[in-house]
Write a protein that binds this DNA or RNA. Structure first.
Lengths: 211, 211, 211, 211
DNA sequence: ACACTCGGGACCTCCCGTTGTT
DNA sequence: AACAACGGGAGGTCCCGAGTGT
């Protein structure tokens, strides 16, 4: 047996916890089941996390948060046209997402809806991630307003909230329908709505661009 | 003591179950706690419902479904301008909703996100309600296209999905933020987006219309 | 199977709990072990007692308390000479007590010493039983002072406390020594000390009376 | 960081263990909590003690035993009148004892009552300490009989057992009542009883001597 | 001589569901 | 139609102890 590798052990637990929680929800998640796949036992888990709740918190803080950053915030950085950036993100997610996630909903949204009203710790953490997401988009919208790719009369903050909400809602509907098709449909309308944020002269016939 | 009143008993259980589920989620809901407030016992519950799961199903089918119909489908019937109707619905909900619900999220969305991936029975039932909601809106959009209040190039079905998703997502964000303010902000953007569905000449400065 | 007998079930649990607690202490007591002998299951236990703690409380309130009353308070009632009554009690206990109890200590004392400093609920309940014991003896001492069998300069309350404490302490020593002999030795001294509570002229050579 | 100091480390653990056991009982004592205050970890503990049980044994053998010697055996050595010596001990303890100990019971008695019936190792060790205590007193009583300060018809051994038991019992009652008052009350009676061990002519009105 | 990491189990809690009874 | 009593199990907590490194 190799020597103890605490960092890797912790990571393995977090990863397994993410999937277990994703599949059964936080309350339905079983520590025994989480540990089953890892080959670890309660002792290791209890050493790294003081409770199931804290494990759940860590999943939000460390795993889900990073995922959102990598998928929805950082990709926008290099692009001058923020709307173009968002459209690309949506298209990429719709295309690359495996079926299980496409039909299982956004992990962040799942946890938020299940736990926000039940546990304040979860609410604060998911709220924080959502706020980072929102402010990332709001910042891009401001940059777009500066370089003329976004209408100046748009409220960047409120609109960013709206966009995040719509994405979460769309993921929720796709989950309810257990179908990629609903996601694609909503995606196109979402993109069309995004197009409405451009200055009148700069709008693109996005629907056709896709076909 | 009055004689047994099966229908009323069933109703009392459903009502209590709705609140318990709303507050603790379905998995977190306790049958004992549901019964506590009603003065009934397990016997009554299991006479009317074969299991906790079926009780949850009944809550969706009978309580939540009716609520959606009354609040989001029927109000649109008498109005010629469907977008105007939706705007009124949003404004009414934002205004009349008590704090607990405004910050606790949409009961339908809560249940959907918690259970859709876990239990197929819940998924089918919540999907059905969502579809009724969506097709109600789609039908109105078609009527609007017929009477010229909605742009003809809009896809009624996809757009209706998108709108339902956005509403659910907005409710989810408000829940995560535990704040009415986020709801109001998103509501205004939502209304602005709705305005984008009108033919170019018919758009209204809705923000001002609200003040 | 006979019909449900809640009272008898509750009694069976209490009885089994008393023994389990007596043998392993309260913290060491296992609910599973308690139920093992009764043929009942967790459901029955949880129905009758909301928690292990409340079960322990009930053992003190209902079982131990009654035992003290029957063995140390009521026997004194019919006897005019309270010191004589106490001596008889001591002798009876020393003689009739089975080995397991003689060497296992007084159940009341065991629970008190283990739990009084840890849990206030236990402390209050054991204190109550001890106070009843003490006031039973104090009352007898007062009666003895009235009829001349007890010295008038004795403080009935303080002395009763002292006597109860000595008995508990003696039981504790016998338990530590796991020997009846220590109990007998202390018992004789205790009886001699009791004799010192009589008026000077009324003292008896108790040691000889015993042989 | 200073170099390793094994003896001091061991001592720190023992001291911390004493308090933890005193407050939570042996079973309730947590190794993690013991180590928390010391800044040490499991590694240090298990280097010095092979198990929790052995740690408990060491607490009895080294800490509690020494405490009893210093407080109840050695103080009697320089005094010719053993009864006077015991009275002083009682008075000193009653006066100097901090509240936490006065109301938390005698550490020796606590451990004895909790563990004697459960674990033979504990029983043997606490019995040993109790025997040393008892034989210390018995020896003094014999000396008193030799110099005429103790009645010759007193059985030194049995009486010493009785006295130790009474003290332990008194501490137990004070713990159950969580009150110093009970301790004071019993203390006075105890002293009066001690006075009864003197030869008839040598008795003192101790109650008045105290005021 | 001590720290970090992890194994593995026993425990209470609590819950859903069923049975006998009225 | 409804109740009181009970069956039976799964889950999180927490703990003691044993490894490896240094």
């Amino acid at each position: 047996m190799v020597t103890k590798q605490p960092e890797q052990t912790r990571h393995k637990i977090l990863e397994a916890a993410l999937w277990e929680i994703y599949r059964h929800g936080f309350k339905g998640a079983s520590l025994d089941r989480i540990l089953e796949g890892t080959g670890l036992t309660k002792g290791a888990l209890y050493y790294h996390f003081p409770s199931k709740l804290e494990l759940g918190y860590a999943v939000v803080d460390e795993v889900i948060r990073r995922w959102i950053e990598e998928h929805w915030i950082e990709p926008l950085n290099g692009i001058d046209d923020p709307i173009e950036g968002l459209v690309r993100c949506v298209r990429r997610e719709l295309a690359e997402m495996p079926d299980e996630i496409a039909c299982g909903g956004c992990p962040l949204n799942n946890l938020t809806q299940e736990m926000a009203a039940v546990d304040e710790g979860f609410r604060l953490r998911t709220e924080k991630v959502l706020n980072e997401w929102q402010s990332g988009i709001a910042q891009q919208l401001r940059r777009g307003q500066a370089n003329g790719t976004v209408r100046p009369d748009v409220d960047p903050d409120a609109t960013a909230f709206y966009l995040v909400g719509s994405l979460q809602g769309a993921a929720g509907l796709a989950k309810a329908a257990r179908s990629r098709k609903v996601g694609y449909q909503i995606g196109e309308v979402f993109i069309a709505m995004l197009d409405g944020l451009r200055p009148a002269g700069a709008r693109v016939a996005l629907a056709e661009a896709h076909t």
